[in-house]
Nucleic acid binder design. Sequence first.
DNA 1: TATGAATGAGTCTTCATTCAT
DNA 2: CATGAATGAAGACTCATTCAT
Lengths: 192, 192, 192, 192
Amino acid sequence: MVSKEERRINIIEAAVKVFSKKGFHKARMEDIAKEAGIGKGTIYEYFDSKKHLFYEMIKHNVNLYKDNIKVILEKESNLEERLLGICRYHGRFISEHIDMAQSIISQSHLIDDEMKCWLFNERMNIFTIFLDIFKDSQKKGELRKDLNIEAAVLSLIGTINQYYSKKIFAEGLSYEEIDPIPVLDVLLKGIE
Amino acid sequence: MVSKEERRINIIEAAVKVFSKKGFHKARMEDIAKEAGIGKGTIYEYFDSKKHLFYEMIKHNVNLYKDNIKVILEKESNLEERLLGICRYHGRFISEHIDMAQSIISQSHLIDDEMKCWLFNERMNIFTIFLDIFKDSQKKGELRKDLNIEAAVLSLIGTINQYYSKKIFAEGLSYEEIDPIPVLDVLLKGIE
Amino acid sequence: MVSKEERRINIIEAAVKVFSKKGFHKARMEDIAKEAGIGKGTIYEYFDSKKHLFYEMIKHNVNLYKDNIKVILEKESNLEERLLGICRYHGRFISEHIDMAQSIISQSHLIDDEMKCWLFNERMNIFTIFLDIFKDSQKKGELRKDLNIEAAVLSLIGTINQYYSKKIFAEGLSYEEIDPIPVLDVLLKGIE
Amino acid sequence: MVSKEERRINIIEAAVKVFSKKGFHKARMEDIAKEAGIGKGTIYEYFDSKKHLFYEMIKHNVNLYKDNIKVILEKESNLEERLLGICRYHGRFISEHIDMAQSIISQSHLIDDEMKCWLFNERMNIFTIFLDIFKDSQKKGELRKDLNIEAAVLSLIGTINQYYSKKIFAEGLSYEEIDPIPVLDVLLKGIE
DNA sequence: TATGAATGAGTCTTCATTCAT
DNA sequence: CATGAATGAAGACTCATTCAT
């Protein structure tokens, strides 16, 4: 016996696996059902369509990401510690949800206007969380006064993405094996 | 009358437009044919399949990107000028070929092992071009001695991607309107 | 608490509403259950399948129709009064059970051979009731001696159907508002 | 080699056969394709959907019916001859297109509002053609002055429907074997 | 060489029916 | 008895690809 909500999560988790492995179009509803250990039709008791399942999966994971980032930021007050935590979690998130991450990071043709709007707002939301942290740090003198905060946040996200992607997908490392120090070093001190 | 090669380029350019607008799966061969102003069947005189057309299109654009980056690097010898040129061209490339760029940057489920291998090599190739530039600059003293060159290159690519994506897609700017200075500032001086 | 038989009738009445509104194929068992205020599975305690429910519903209504026609015919002995009663009741029946009426009047692809046979017999039965009335009236001199009784009965049924259908569906009248006199006039006197 | 238009008619004729034999819902697109001697997908080159094919089929046949009725009415100027012609053609039409006829005569849940409107207008159109004939005849003195023309037309249509339906479906006659005289007799002289 | 009509494999989705609670 | 969550068979529809002209 599983509750309605458990079954929902159960399906979303199967969807994450199958969409991540095959991509939206190659993923068959039957595959997702099999992965969840249920019948094809059951998915439709919980989600209106393949597209809606995809949306709900993204929402679920974006919320997961946000919640975890918040926890990390609350645990630490020191900037370097915070960046370290973000690096590690973001890296782990990329390695586990690369397609999800792509959906968050990039535009998609699957996504209708309502969803696009929601995603846009969420990205802005995450962006703003980082922005606020950087503003605080700037006030506290942890960051130089003439720093363009916006560019800094975007550099943070972009650098982590590239660095962890390369280590995970090109070099085959697992996210625990990746040393975040070079990322922090470049970010903090620049290249000059 | 057009030559074989002109027609090929003609089809690839149509494919760029349609794949960029609709994504691989939503793009129909008929759409591409119409965009190229030819009949559906004609595409198959030049490309074996939709997938092959997609591959050839990526190759075409990756080569274009590489050629242009090389020209920029040859034109300038000063690091900051080079970074400025890369910023501008990369930004323009993103704005014109966002889906292409995603295909180059990210993994894709459409892509078979041979293609994956080719793409991987190309990415490494581009990565190496940047790496060599940074090594030279480090020797010349334009970069600090203790800099992790690899992290620096990945930060460069990641930061440009994020910054230009945000400006273009979230703020609706055209790539000419985007000021590359904040990107360079963060990259060169870091955030501290 | 309701008895087995009350629940059965309750379901049939819900079925009438839903089948009438949506047609056999568009009507969902869940809709019927909801209309009856019970659970989906409960219907299967009373009827073997959707098709059987449909059959039982038709039987119920055909019997209703026959019973009411008999009552009308017993109440009146004068031909014109009887025709008037038939007009009114048949018109009301059409307006309330148009899809039912169509099922009785026309062939249907839903209907298997046993049901077809039963329906055929019922139609013949109703036809015979009218036929007997007309024969009696012919004997009593209420109808001309050279009248083809069969054609007369079919004309009666066909004329009422057309006339009431037009008034109800094309002109939007309710069956009480429809004047049966023109129908009787044409039937009795012909057009010449 | 067949022209676009020939293929269209070809498909509609196959659709008439299959829809008539199986009804809308039981008819599979594959059946219709097979009947037309073509592939499933080809139908979609000519019709947007199953529903649209159904609509186009109805339109085709309604137009056929109207054209033939007009030819019959133009050929004869005498009322009885005209009624005879209508009887025979309408009977033949019923025997060949019973489901079509039902679609014209009855309401249907398949039919959307635009189509309903079109069908309604066509029915009114056919009704008006008959009405005009009767008005002319009334002027010429072929019909009694106090006749309700509307009721007369509806009686004509209804009586033919019932009579030919019974002869064809209950008694298994072919439409050529059916004697139209009893229908005309009842219609012209009434039952009294 | 270029075409586009024809094809049919592949998949989402619906919903009657079952059965464990 | 009553329920409704789970099921999976069935069918409409899409579109890459072929091939006769």
